[in-house]
Each structure stands twice: as structure tokens, then as C-alpha cells.
Simulated scan of single mutants.
Amino acid sequence: METFLSWVNQAVAAVFEWAPKLVGALIVLAIGWWAINAITRITKNAMQRSKLDRDVIPFLSSIVNVGLKVLLFISVAGMIGIETTSFIALLGMAGLAIGLALQGTLGHFASGVMVLLFKPYRVGDLVDIHGNVGSVEEIQVFHTIIRTLDNKRVIIPNGTATSDIMTNLSTHKYLRVDLEAAMPYEEDFDKIQQIIKSALASTTGVLKDPAPTVEILGFGENNVKLAIRPYAMVDEYWNVYFNSYKNVKAALGANHVQVAYPRRNISVLRGNSSSSTTVAAKPGAARKNNDDKGAASASGSSSIH
């Protein structure tokens, strides 16, 4: 019984001894946490007002936030009664173990530093990183955040961004828009070229310098393939892409340029005479061609080649 009472007395004494320290430590932790978040916000606003490179601001803000919180935890540990020297040594050992376990994460951190130093891309640039095309919203300590063209938020580890091929589409401020069209062999190329160039000149967003080009890309079975190459600013790329096709289609129709339908030459032999005709595979023509073939097959003295 005396042993139990002695243990209770020791427990009560320990509570009265440690309770003020614990309460004080928790209060300091709560106030310190709030203060650190406030300091981080103030520091971030100050860096923005100082016109510091906006690529660096999120990175430095994260470092300030993490560093102050580490100092806060060390201070709270000292208030509780933990020897800070031992705690710092223990923290160093834990940091080494964590560093070995998180080599990939630390690699992302180093890659983030490289991105900020060498600036292969900046906040606001249109980039293609690991197959993700979009605008860079933020460069953080471990990640780069991209807003894709279909309004998705993609978070890419900095190590992945720097270890793979990345394409910065904003470096030269404008892009070439690759379009294709086709013209019948019967049409004059110079005429078609002028029609398409006039249509591009009236398309909003198409740059005059460098000027658009319209050239022959190749020869198909039923038409001549054309390469249409206007230029546009980065933020106007998709408007130019769709509007150019729309205006070229309208201009070709207005100038009575026929669509290059597939054509077939059919020769019909009747005795010693022969005749030939050209059939275009327009909509509804397939059924007509089948009827013609049936009629030709019904005649025992005719053949189709």
C-alpha cells in the first residue's frame, strides 16, 4: 500500500512539474505555427513587391517556411526539457537516414534548384514536359505545376522534368501552325496558292512576319497535297489553327474549286470498238457504279478493265 501511495505521489508530482512545460510548449507551438505562416505570407508579398523573379518566389517561400518550422520544433523540444544538443545530433542522424531513404525526393529538390538557376522554362511559359503540354503555373521545391490545354492541373516532379526531353514553346514568342489541304490535279497551283494566301491574310492572329507559306507537300492518288504554314503567337495558336481551316475552306468554295474526289477510268470493250469514261467517287456514286457494273456483267459481249 505504501508503495502504491508513493507511486501516486510521484506521478502527481511529475504531472505538476511537467504540466506547465507541456502547456507552455503547446501554446508556443500553436502561436509559432501561426506566426511562421504569417511570416511566410509577408515574405512572399515582399518578394513580389520587390519584383523578384517570380520563378524564385515559391521556391524561397517554401525554404523559409520549412526552416522556421524546424527551428520552432527545436525550441519546443528545449522547453519540454529535451537537451537541444542531443536533439540536434539526433536530428542530424535522422536527417541522414531520411536522406538515404528519400534520395529521389532530394534529387527533385536539386533539380528544382537547377531549373531556377539555368531557367529552361519560367512561370507562364508554354512547355511540353514528358508529353504534357501546358502553361507553367508554379515551380516549387520538389515539383513543377502545369496547367494543360484542356484545363488539367499536372504536377511533375522536378527530377522527371530535367531528366527527360523538355520543349519550351514560348522561347521564340511565336509558333508555326502546320496545316494540310488537297487540290485536284486539274487546278492551277499558282491560282490555288494565291487563294489560300488571301484567306490566311484575312485570318485573325496570322502573323505577317514571318509570312505564311503554301507549297506542294506531295502527290496523292487522286489529288495534290498542299502544306499550309502560317505563323501565330503562342496564345493565338489554336485560334489560328481552326480559323485558318475555316477561311481556306470558304475561299476555295467561293472560287469554285472542286473537292478532289477519287476518280477511276473505266474502259468498256464491245467487239472491235471501245469507249472510256471517268467516274468520280462522290457521295452516292458507289451505288451508281455498282449498277453500271451489274449492267455490264449482264452483257455477254462486254468486259470491264
Results as ranks from 00 to 15, higher is better:
residue 246 K to Y: 05
residue 158 N to E: 15
residue 171 T to L: 09
residue 222 N to C: 03
residue 151 N to R: 01
residue 54 R to K: 14
residue 273 S to G: 12
residue 186 E to H: 04
residue 67 G to Q: 08
residue 265 N to T: 14
residue 208 K to M: 07
residue 72 L to A: 11
residue 29 L to M: 10
residue 130 H to E: 14
residue 204 T to L: 08
residue 303 S to P: 02
residue 191 K to Y: 10
residue 40 T to W: 03
residue 143 H to R: 11
residue 89 A to I: 12
residue 295 A to K: 14
residue 157 P to K: 08
residue 297 S to G: 10
residue 235 D to R: 04
residue 267 S to M: 12
residue 235 D to W: 05
residue 296 A to H: 04
residue 244 S to C: 05
residue 252 L to I: 10
residue 3 T to S: 09
residue 291 D to V: 13
residue 6 S to I: 02
residue 60 L to K: 10
residue 125 D to M: 04
residue 302 S to D: 01
residue 147 R to K: 15
residue 95 G to Q: 06
residue 215 E to P: 00
residue 134 G to T: 10
residue 228 I to A: 05
residue 276 S to L: 12
residue 83 E to W: 06
residue 299 S to P: 02
residue 214 V to P: 10
residue 152 K to T: 14
residue 281 A to W: 06
residue 245 Y to V: 02
residue 92 G to N: 00
residue 278 T to D: 15
residue 151 N to E: 15
residue 25 A to D: 01
residue 72 L to M: 09
residue 300 G to M: 03
residue 261 Y to S: 08
residue 251 A to F: 04
residue 166 M to A: 06
residue 274 S to A: 13
residue 203 T to L: 09
residue 278 T to L: 12
residue 167 T to L: 14
residue 184 P to K: 09
residue 284 G to W: 01
residue 115 V to A: 05
residue 262 P to L: 09
residue 80 I to P: 00
residue 38 A to H: 00
residue 94 A to M: 07
residue 12 V to T: 05
residue 194 Q to E: 15
residue 236 E to T: 05
residue 139 I to Q: 03
residue 183 M to S: 14
residue 132 N to I: 11
residue 221 E to K: 04
residue 238 W to K: 00
residue 124 G to P: 01
residue 297 S to H: 11
residue 244 S to G: 02
residue 69 K to M: 03
residue 211 A to H: 03
residue 284 G to M: 05
residue 108 H to I: 02
residue 198 S to W: 02
residue 279 V to T: 07
residue 106 L to M: 08
residue 170 S to F: 03
residue 71 L to F: 05
residue 112 G to Q: 01
residue 91 L to C: 01
residue 164 D to W: 12
residue 31 I to N: 01
residue 229 R to N: 12
residue 109 F to S: 01
residue 132 N to H: 13
residue 256 H to C: 05
residue 117 L to P: 02
